[in-house]
Design a protein around this nucleic acid. Structure first.
Lengths: 116, 116
DNA sequence: ATTGAATGATACGGTCCCGTAACGATGTAG
DNA sequence: CTACATCGTTACGGGACCGTATCATTCAAT
């Protein structure tokens, strides 16, 4: 069944999750970076720079730079596509999977604490 | 009653909201900026630089810079405290209130679309 | 073999943000 | 009136990101 939220609940949830991330010193990712990261981990592969750029309606360098940064954080990986060596296949990492999983746990915990 | 979310729902919700913000060209705010913005609009005033820095466990310049950026976007306002002129009181703006309200609407809409 | 399209990365000038340290303005206590 | 504490901002060198344009590599078609 669908999840029904009231405005105050929706906003409070976002605030609590964001505050938790900041307080605990997690990487200060932007909305763009988060959307890329979650798409890689939630949508079925394969993921390419061009595909992600198209999905988010942003330019390719935006994706390349976000992958640079999140790759340095070991949240995503890149490898050449052997079938078509122009492509770069973007994959998951252990650290990235842990980050996403933990993020989900925070959302669940904060949602459970929401006042009625 | 509390909101119960499964892991896939929690993560999908964040992805859908983040994607919506990016696709629609909304300001690409970081987690820090979002936590500051939501705290200003959800928690009771007054809000000061020192108070926000303490609340988020970050340094004061982090708050000052975030207020610079979001102030340029007209999402928050600053004014001197007449009672104690060392303080700066951080307030809301019409544009900021609209942004927050619209953000809540997006969360509600994406939550309603979540598969069971 | 040559041309052309497609992919992802890079270069550029500019802006924003970082953490640390210092600063001016303001308030408070002796 | 003179210290001293507090508040928010600014300075600094460095890194990340922006949008636009261009690049090298690879593939596909002639």
């Amino acid at each position: 069944m669908a999840i029904a939220l009231r405005p105050s609940q929706a906003l409070r949830l976002w605030q609590q999750v964001a505050l938790h991330e900041v307080e605990n010193g997690m990487p200060d990712l932007s909305t763009r970076q988060l959307s890329i990261l979650f798409t890689i981990y939630l949508d079925p592969p394969p993921h390419t720079v061009r595909g992600l750029a198209s999905r988010l309606s942003v330019s390719k360098p935006v994706i390349t730079r976000a992958l640079d940064t999140m790759g340095a954080l070991d949240l995503v990986s890149r490898r050449r596509d052997d079938a078509d060596r122009r492509n770069v296949l973007i994959g998951r990492t252990v650290a990235g999977a842990l980050f996403v999983e933990r993020f989900g746990d925070v959302v669940i915990a904060k949602a459970a604490e929401l006042p009625t």
